[in-house]
Design a binder for these strands. Structure first.
Length: 552
RNA sequence: UGGGGUGUAGCCAAGCGGUAAGGCAGCGGGUUUUGAUCCCGUCAUGCGAAGGUUCGAAUCCUUCCACCCCAGCCA
């Protein structure tokens, strides 16, 4: 959160009150991802919330991997997640935490519940358990194992732990209420048998705690004061509280829920994102079209823009769908203010200036309204490239670019006038012959005939040549995720357009991997950080009111 | 039909009994060597609906309606 006088969101109000009333001396939050995929924009909201709250209230935020399910988790993901959180600009308190490092305590607490008659080993199969659970409107039935002797459960639990039983043959369940209106309270599973190696604990465990049995206790161990999660966990809160109340945990955390982020034209479901990667619809988790933090980073989004976006959308308990235009606004806003300018001709058309001889170097500002950004040198000569879209043989008055017999300003250089067009046998324009209007560097033509517009260009004799990746939305449908439809059928076949042989000003040869620029009149681009050759990725186009006029 | 949650403009979102902030998008105009940026203006007699309380209601009460989540040994 920024320091301006924005109204407090509901969580900030709760925390402010808790701190003022001395309910807590210090705020401690946590961001608890499961390392089963890369972080996406929805996680960014949670990260900004949890770390942001800690920042504004002088508290701390932990990074804790909720690694209770070895079947789905990998080290690659834990590394990627740490990198993404750091990249967003947040620092977690102390070391990275792992739910798995609390497995001993969790097990002791499970034993504690059994000893107090509040948990039992159940031998119902998953299918049977489902039948016993009842439905949303009908009460469930007690498991036949529910009232077995404590000693028996204790013995069975111990043997589950040491690998004495097959996966799925037994489970430890809390003894709560099979008729409860909240399904989560119908004797939920605490431990299940999983004979799988874990990325942190190796093969030490044959049983793993479920989310419900682990999460609140993890929070208590870390003295989390406000445990913030998304709306779908609101139903779990009574269970969260039940464990905290029935276990000798060291602190009393409270759970609060907020509405997760939904973005139109975007899919934010780890399962679906993983599918896009696994089935090769994108090049990987960091494909610039992916709504992952890694994808946005490679696309050229900045941490500041993502944080700004999270700030813009707010935090509430209503679940809406945010327009991607907001995200696009956030990155344009940041890059407009901070990205150095450069010229790049995406689809080159040669223009020969018949009255110009020799070459010269011109100076251009690094940014139109920031003189702290270094200016650059531009080569100029008799042969230049302009974009094919910036020339027409004839056009109406609304078209403010190069037209035969008309003038146009070359950005940062002279005004020119087009005389003639050359075509090949297929009738395609191959070259334009034009003239420089003398003495128009930095001033209007002396004859009073002003150029109507300004176009960008690059000198043919001294430029950089590279590939540009034009990225667009991954989905054509505003709600690819919505009910029933197959999200893959909504994929945009034109989400990536590769342009070879683009001509950019020479200085672009020195761009650092990841460095962002505004290619004037085109959009924001960054040097791809992965490819060997020089390639630029389009982060986002400039707003284009001409396109609106033209399409009318 | 059980439990939990949410309804303020096209979208996000303030509002917490005193007469509907802000942002995004849109629209109109101005500046401009980027059809960008920037600037100005415009955009809810209306707050899911209907009743009620009150001098006064988006805010309180009642009833109704719509939408979201829950029946993984996923998180």
């Amino acid at each position: 959160m920024s320091v301006d006088d924005k109204p407090l969101n509901f969580l900030e109000q709760i925390i402010k009150k808790d701190l003022e009333e001395g309910v807590h001396q210090k705020l401690i939050t946590r961001f608890p991802p499961e390392p089963n995929g890369y972080l996406h924009i929805g996680h960014a909201k949670s990260i900004c919330l949890n770390f942001g709250l800690a920042e504004t209230f002088g508290g701390e935020c932990n990074l804790r991997f909720d690694d209770t399910n070895p079947a789905k988790e990998e080290m690659e993901y834990v590394e990627a997640i740490e990198k993404d959180v750091r990249w967003l600009g947040f620092q977690w308190a102390g070391e990275v935490r792992y739910a798995s490092s609390y497995f001993d305590s969790l097990y002791e607490w499970a034993v504690h519940l059994v000893k107090h008659g509040k948990a039992y080993v159940c031998e119902l199969s998953a299918d049977e358990a489902r039948k016993y659970r009842g439905t949303l409107t009908e009460a469930g039935q007690n498991s036949p194992y529910r009232d077995r002797p404590v000693e028996e459960s204790l013995d069975l639990l111990e043997r589950m732990k040491t690998g004495g039983f097959d996966e799925g043959s037994k489970a430890l369940r809390a003894k709560i209420d099979m008729a409860h209106g909240n399904m989560n309270m119908r004797d939920p599973i605490l431990y299940r048998i999983r004979k799988q190696a874990h990325h942190q604990t190796g093969d030490k465990w044959c049983i793993y705690p479920t989310y419900d049995f682990a999460h609140g206790q993890e929070d208590a161990i870390e003295n989390i004061t406000h445990s913030i999660c998304t709306l779908e966990f609101a139903d779990h809160r009574p269970l969260y509280d039940w464990f905290i109340e029935n276990l000798p945990v060291p602190s009393r955390p409270r759970q609060y829920e907020f509405g997760r982020l939904n973005l139109n034209y975007t899919v934010t479901s780890k399962r679906k994102l993983k599918q896009l990667v696994d089935e090769g619809h994108v090049s990987g988790w960091d494909d610039p079209r992916m709504p992952t933090i890694a994808g946005y980073r490679r696309r050229g989004y900045t941490p500041a823009s993502i944080r700004k976006f999270c700030d813009m959308i707010g935090v509430t308990k209503s679940d809406g769908v945010v327009d991607v235009a907001m995200l696009e606004h956030a990155i344009r806003d940041d890059l407009d203010k901070n990205a150095p300018r450069a010229m790049c001709v995406l689809r080159p058309l040669k223009v020969v200036l018949s009255n110009y001889t020799g070459t010269e170097m011109l100076t251009a500002a690094g940014h139109p309204n920031r003189d702290d950004l270094a200016s650059r040198q531009l080569a100029f000569g008799a042969e230049i490239y302009i974009d094919k879209a910036d020339f027409r043989e004839e056009a109406n008055k609304k078209y403010k670019r190069l037209v035969i017999g008309k003038r146009v300003r070359l950005r940062n250089a002279y005004v020119i006038e087009a005389d003639e067009v050359l075509k090949n046998e297929a009738g395609e324009i191959t070259e334009v012959k034009a003239r420089v209007i003398e003495n128009t560097l930095g001033k209007d033509p002396e004859d009073g005939v002003k150029a109507k517009g300004v176009i960008h260009w690059v000198a043919a004799h001294d430029c950089a040549e590279f590939t540009v990746n034009l990225y667009d939305r991954l989905f054509t449908d505003a709600a690819p995720d919505a009910g029933g439809k197959d999200f893959l059928s909504c994929l945009n076949p034109e989400s990536l357009l590769v342009l070879e042989g683009c001509k950019g000003e020479k200085s672009l040869l020195n761009a650092e991997p990841g460095q962002g620029f505004q290619f004037e009149r085109e959009g924001y681009f960054c040097r791809d950080e992965k490819s060997e050759s020089l390639q630029f990725n389009r982060t986002i186009s400039l707003r284009d009111s001409w396109a609106k006029i033209e399409n009318k």
